[in-house]
């Protein structure tokens, strides 16, 4: 009887690495760009990267592009190599500190607020316009005002980062928490689940993919705001270094900072890509 009942289904995750990759990276916003599936693809990706950098080097040298317009990639590499520890690292730490502090505050308030507010549709209606206002207003604009009140410490920047990332996390998480699958709630309730059990075992897992997307977008917004705030109102941090090096026309150093910032951004993406893969891969 048992064997008669067994359906024929296509073998999932057994068709080599590529099928596995497609199956696991089914995460809405993060799914589009994957990483190398095997050494062959990795080699091609590496070759293309070398080609782009080498090509830039050739163009800059061949056309005698002045260093203040665009320094040769090799000069930027040299600047990174020699100056990273002594000059850039302390400022990177400052930026990271501001980003992490502000993000932790903003994201946790964002998730909490989303979880609570979505339980009360009318309260959600009242709050949503203000959240949208926070999302669309560049928080860097607040920094001069905050600096006036709080001085040149890290507080104004932490507040700006929290205000930039929090609403982003909240608005996406709220979308997740609003996904109420009535059949699944009924299932849990039919076993006598408490409100708390329904939250931890149904609502939260159901919302998790959207929360992760919100956390990623919030982190990127936080980074942008942290750097922007340092440009506007700080004597330290990577944003401040951008101003400093460009005012001195030290373009190799300037571009080194840009590369560090880009790496940070990519790192954020990669971290959340893996989190999504681990915790939200069930979502088609």
């Amino acid at each position: 009887m048992a064997s008669e009942l067994r359906d024929n289904i296509p073998a999932f995750g057994e068709g080599g690495d590529e099928t596995q990759e497609v199956g696991l990276s089914n995460m809405s916003a993060l799914a589009d760009t994957g990483f190398a599936n095997n050494w062959k693809e990795a080699l091609i990706l590496l070759l293309v990267a070398c080609g782009v950098i080498g090509g830039l080097e050739l163009i800059v040298r061949g056309f005698d592009v002045p260093a203040y317009t665009f320094p040769a990639p090799s000069e930027i590499g040299e600047s990174l190599w020699h100056n990273f520890r002594p000059l850039y690292w302390p400022h990177l730490l400052v930026t990271l500190k501001v980003l992490l502090l502000g993000y932790l505050i903003g994201a946790s308030i964002g998730i909490l607020l989303a979880a609570i507010i979505t339980q009360f549709p009318f309260a959600e209606k009242i709050v949503t316009p203000y959240i949208l206002l926070l999302v669309t207003t560049p928080m860097i604009a607040l920094v001069p005002l905050l600096v006036q009140k709080l001085g040149f410490g890290i507080q104004p920047r932490v507040i700006a980062v929290a205000l930039a990332s929090g609403p982003m996390v909240m608005i996406n998480s709220a979308t997740g928490f609003r996904r109420t699958d009535l059949a699944k709630l009924a299932l849990a309730r039919s076993y006598g689940a408490t409100t708390f059990q329904i939250f931890t075992k149904v609502r939260f897992p159901l919302a998790l993919p959207m929360i992760i997307v919100g956390l990623m977008v919030g982190a990127i917004f936080g980074l942008l705001t942290a750097v922007g705030a340092e440009i506007v109102g700080s004597g330290e941090g990577l944003g401040n270094r951008l101003m400093y090096y460009s005012s001195r026309i030290q373009m190799a150093n300037f571009w080194s900072i840009i590369i560090i910032l880009a790496t940070l951004g990519i790192l954020i993406y990669v971290i959340f890509y893996w989190i999504g893969k681990r915790w939200a891969s069930w979502q088609a």
């Binding site: 699944k184 299932l187 076993y191 006598g192 075992k201 998790l208 939200a280 069930w282």
Partner: peptide, 26 residues
Amino acid sequence: GMIFQEANLLPWRNLQQNIEFPFEIK
């Protein structure tokens, strides 16, 4: 015990974890 229109399994749990879901709640 209820059986619903759709199978109503929790997509983030594997089969075993789905079957143990009532025990967790209870």
